[in-house]
Design a binder for these strands. Structure first.
Lengths: 151, 151
DNA sequence: TGTCATTTGATACTCAGTTTCATCAATTGA
DNA sequence: TCAATTGATGAAACTGAGTATCAAATGACA
């Protein structure tokens, strides 16, 4: 079963209708290997209206198909979530997003549980990089490091 | 030197004027132990206009005094950053924010560097909790866990 | 105290996303 | 097979958060 099929299957299984707009949107977003913004989809999928694009994205996030990623500034990016639990590597220059998983970190975070009366319900890890492609294209790390306190 | 004094000092040292609005805003935001939103400050500090509040927050983020925290939904929260490098524990119920630091995790993330041609410039870790206060007030974990894929 | 660059704030604007509601389409059931 | 029902759509108006503009005010320093 392809990714496309499995997404459509999931919607069908959960009682949502498979409409033309939804199929067009799924077709478009699975092409975005490195994530996309809502407005990118609005522009790309002219067959679907603004409201439908936003509604469909929300639906897919709710269904666990998409992963919403709030950026420090600008609109959030969405990625098709391959792994059930994962984190993100984000290029600070082009905004592209990749998934990763690091069991050492998972274990360390687990060990924090109940340290001071709070109940841990989850966590999120984002690693900011200058991706190989951007570096090759001449982007320099220094100007970026300054505006990213995350270091 | 108090926190208030050190913030004002920093602005002065960097050539910014110490105006009535800025002092009022600093006075207000240092009271928010658990973070605040821009609109909260707009409401609280009637002596300063909307634009000034937003400008001052941006200035303080630039100066490293405040830490901007993009939320999954809704406006970002700001915290006075005590430690130079730290991460956040966020209550998914009330939105309050606390800082933490975990050297094990730092080390694990450092070891990821240069795994696949990307240059790591920073990272961010957020731990989502139901804080002790909210749990005591009767908030239940289960309803929250569902909507937070972060687990 | 005067000078003047910096800061302010009212207002208008932009941008991202949501609501509304009339219309349309997919499913149900007779 | 054909209504009836319910869910989905989209144009447009709206909301909320934040920014730009620009004349007026003000803090720093001579």
């Amino acid at each position: 079963m392809t990714l496309r099929e499995s997404i459509i299957q999931k919607l069908e299984d959960n009682g949502f209708r498979i409409t033309g707009s939804r199929v067009k949107l799924v077709d478009s977003l699975i092409k975005h290997e490195e994530g996309f913004t809502a407005e990118e989809l609005v522009t790309e999928v002219r067959e679907a209206g603004r409201a439908t694009v936003y509604r469909t994205i929300r639906l897919l996030v709710d269904q666990g198909v998409l992963c919403k990623l709030a950026m420090d500034s600008g609109a959030p990016r969405y990625t098709v979530s391959g792994m059930a639990h994962h984190h993100h590597i984000i290029c600070v220059h082009c905004g592209s997003v990749r998934e990763f998983r690091q069991t050492v970190i998972e274990r360390a975070l687990k060990s924090m549980e109940d340290d001071d009366g709070d109940t841990v319900v989850g966590h999120r890890i984002e690693v900011f990089v200058l991706c190989a492609a951007c570096r090759a294209a001449g982007a320099k790390v220094d100007s970026i490091r300054a505006e990213h306190q995350h270091s």
